[in-house]
Amino acid sequence: MVRVTINKEPREALVEPRTLLAYFIRDALGLTGTHVGCDTTSCGACTVLLDGVPVKSCTILAIAVQGHEIETVEGLEQEGVLHPLQQAFWDNHGLQCGFCTPGMLMTSKALLQSSPGELNEADVRRAISGNLCRCTGYVNIVKAVLAARERLREAQEEVRTS
């Protein structure tokens, strides 16, 4: 039995030791926002946050994350409000077919969390270089991540001044 906390909710399922985390999330827990796009740990469509750190869930055994915290794309929206990254991807046409999008969002979320200082375009490009996209050419993804960073800052400013 593998027990995890996923998107703040405790869940468990019985799986074989060889079950990969991506399939545990998709098949056993029914959260299909996490996608699988390759078999060589190359594409990043399966990116989730494991204890807050973005990892490729196709290259981790489900059994190895026993008791850990996982966050997937389904956990981004809070109380009906889109995460600023989701909103920014929408506003800036940061997605087309949508298949790489959940992975991009999770990697970007970790980037914004772990980089309190200045972020420039090159930083964002480096940070998302483990996530492949075939549709967008990355331009609008980078734009969206930087826009979300601005929005988060503004929100923090508002909290501080209020």
């Binding site: 998709r26 098949d27 959260l31 299909t32 926002g33 996490t34 996608h35 699988v36 997937t72 794309v73 389904e74 981004l76 929206e77 889109l82 989701q86 991807f89 929408w90 506003d91 046409h93 997605l95 949508g98 298949f99 999008t101 959940p102 969002l105």
Partner: peptide, 20 residues
């Protein structure tokens, strides 16, 4: 703004392998 995006940004697209 794209009408298809609200489901994709929530991970609620319904791709082939999502169908059980």
């Amino acid at each position: 703004k794209r009408k298809e995006d609200p489901r994709f940004i929530r991970g609620q697209g319904r791709y082939l392998d999502d169908i059980v």
